[in-house]
Nucleic acid binder design. Structure first.
Length: 583
RNA sequence: GGUGGCGUAGUUCAGUUGGUUAGAAUGCCGGCCUGUCACGCCGGAGGUCGCGAGUUCGAGUCUCGUCGUCACCGCCA
């Protein structure tokens, strides 16, 4: 080893010891007669000191060292005369006897510090430098620790991690596939997996009754702060289980991570909220339950009272904001603008102020008397000092807008504490979703999801009403994972494909391997997959999953560091039998 | 595919109704400095105002296009 210690471990107890440290030059402070150099590695920062009086040659050499030079220094640990209690090693310094420059460095394009001066783009281009920074380094370490704890817990529960192939087959359902051309078979392509879904089901048929995998998945869609083209799932599947077995097992995983990573003992069972109730109360299937402010349906109370805007709509609903009676006209205008943004889509905002003196002032006083407004208030559990915010329109769109408004108010009122976690299971999702564009049903989860037994009779009469035996884990309004009890019967799977508009030939062509496997004794099974990047991000407490991926891609799917995607040479294209067509 | 923000020194940003030589901080370079740790003081260098058209006597500033980037909508079983 080139070093005897790391830059983070030396304390007063090692006073007088001769040590050798290796690391990067964080900063040097040249005072003329003496020079201080902070040397940094993964573990911390230690101060080196050079003195003109005791070793002039060494000191003048030290003065020439620039930022981010890699150096190796040997010297004696000494108690400082001026201690720095801001860093763990701040009570000591190294009186250097000899040092060498292991490698020089150009001046980095941004500062390698806790708070850098570099912008997002620049930091991504020089990601290897950004990773030297403490906050980013901490995120990567957090990611590793979570992966380690996931493996520990699942290992304890006798799960086996099994790798599945990355070059697989493109399928029509779901997200767009990334594809890889085959050289040996011109005109044919592999696809990268959107998830190992069918493989883990095949593993169940093989008898590996508890499987998991920390696995890369790929989806060729447009990206966001919380979506990358390649991302990591904690992919799990179990045999001979029913829904509650899965929920209990993986609630256990979540609690293990809460305990180990956030030191938080989550004792209670996670609440379970039916999909329909989630939509009614929160306007979304991934509710943030850190705060209440539930949506209330007042359609019956407000419709048909002569207010035209309300009379013509399908749904009227609102939320009660505590302490909102004091909101100024300006603030209410701002909220109106907020809900009218195209992304939110509401047409307007009606408010009812419940003043502290017991009077009520609303934007619809002309159309509703006090008695009627009091009924709204009763319904929404409003009290003096609160404000009711009411939206109306198409049911689905209005609930969506209310969910966004609810989150905005939660944010404004500081109800969304990063260090509070409220997990819950959302259950009883619809099995199918009608898609206007293609004029057919789409699987809401995926085509292998089974229906709840009580709803089997609806297959013939009203498929849209069938509830799936599916579930999502939601924490703080983030969908952390989801899964289902699968279909394990060939007949039922065939019927599902039929409902989704597959011809028997198409089903055979795309999923024949699975249907075939079902012939040979498929056990009842089900599973779940967690978005690992999102989970780490949630525990890390910032907003972008890019912060927790060592080498992420930007929102256009480009890696600006290695500069890809990039063009292939004509020779490569020829080999792959590909021709590039300019659109 | 759509909407919006941003693009000016190495970096982060400012730049007035369109008007002379485009500024600040920080970083960098040089000098001074023996207890700094955001060291301090003095001096210096550093600009294709993303790119391309257009309007104008004159464009960092206005218009159009384009590229890059970020956020959101669509999309993401």
């Amino acid at each position: 080893m080139l070093r005897t210690h790391t830059c983070g471990e030396l304390r007063l107890s090692k006073n007088g010891k001769k040590v050798t440290l290796c690391g990067w030059v964080q900063k040097s402070r040249d005072l003329g007669g003496m020079t201080f150099i902070d040397i940094r590695d993964r573990y911390g920062i230690t101060q080196l000191v050079f003195n003109m009086e005791t070793n002039a040659g060494l000191c003048s050499n030290a003065r020439k060292i620039g930022r981010e030079f890699v150096i190796c220094a040997t010297g004696i640990v000494k108690e400082r005369s001026n201690k720095n209690f801001n860093i763990p090693t701040g009570e000591i310094e190294i009186v250097v006897q000899e040092f060498k420059v292991l490698n020089k460095s150009e001046v980095p394009p941004f500062t390698i510090e806790e708070e850098t001066d570099g912008g997002e783009e620049l930091r991504m281009k020089y990601r290897y430098l950004d990773l030297r920074r403490n906050p980013v380094k901490k995120n990567i370490i957090l990611r590793y620790e979570m992966a380690r704890e996931v493996r520990k817990y699942l290992d304890l529960k006798e799960f086996i991690e099994i790798e599945t192939p990355v070059l697989i087959k493109s399928t029509p359902e779901g997200a767009r596939d990334f594809v890889v051309p085959s050289r040996l078979k011109a005109g044919e392509f592999y696809a990268l997996p959107q998830s190992p879904q069918t493989f883990k089901q095949l593993l169940m048929i093989s008898g590996f009754d508890k499987y998991f995998q920390l696995v890369k998945c790929f989806r060729d869609e447009d990206f966001r702060a919380d979506r990358q083209p390649e991302f990591t799932q904690i992919d799990c599947e179990m045999s001979f289980v029913e829904r509650d077995d899965i929920l209990e097992t993986f609630e256990g995983l979540a609690k293990h991570l809460f305990k180990k990573i956030r030191d938080f003992d989550y004792k209670d069972a996670f609440p379970r909220l039916p999909y329909n109730e989630a939509l009614e109360k929160y306007g979304t299937d991934k509710p943030d339950t850190r705060f209440e402010m539930l949506i209330q349906d007042i359609t019956e109370l407000a419709k048909g009272k002569g207010f035209k805007v309300f009379d013509s709509v399908e749904y009227i609903g609102g939320i009660c904001v505590k302490g909102g009676a004091e909101y100024s006209r300006k603030k209410l205008d701002a909220l109106t603008d907020f809900v009218r943004k195209p992304q939110i889509g509401a047409t307007g905002l009606v408010y009812v102020k419940l003043n502290n003196d017991g009077t009520v002032k609303s934007s619809v006083d002309k159309f509703f008397n006090r008695e009627e407004l009091d009924k709204w208030t009763g319904n929404m559990e409003g009290e003096n000092g609160d404000i009711l915010l009411v939206l109306a329109g198409d049911r689905k769109k209005t609930l969506y807008a209310l969910s966004k408004l609810r989150l905005e108010m939660g944010k404004q009122l500081g109800l969304m504490d990063k260090n509070t976690f409220t997990p819950l299971w959302v259950v009883d999702f619809p099995l199918l979703e009608w898609d206007d564009e293609s004029q057919r049903y789409h699987a809401m989860h995926h085509p292998f999801t089974s229906a709840i037994k009580d709803d089997f009779h609806l297959f013939k009469t009203d498929p849209g009403k069938i509830r799936a035996n599916a579930y999502d884990l939601v924490i703080n309004g983030v969908e952390i994972g989801g899964g289902s009890i699968r279909i394990h019967d060939k007949q039922k799977q065939a019927e599902m494909f039929r409902l989704l508009g597959f011809s028997p030939e198409e089903a055979e062509n795309q999923f024949g391997f699975l249907m075939n496997a079902f012939k040979y004794g498929a056990p009842p099974h089900g599973g779940i997959a967690f978005g690992f990047d999102r989970w780490v991000t949630l525990f890390g407490g910032t907003d972008s999953i890019r912060d927790y991926i060592a080498f992420p891609k930007n929102t256009a799917g480009r890696d600006v560091m290695i500069d890809t995607p990039s063009v292939l040479s004509d020779e490569q294209l020829r080999e792959l039998s590909l021709k590039v067509v300019n659109k």
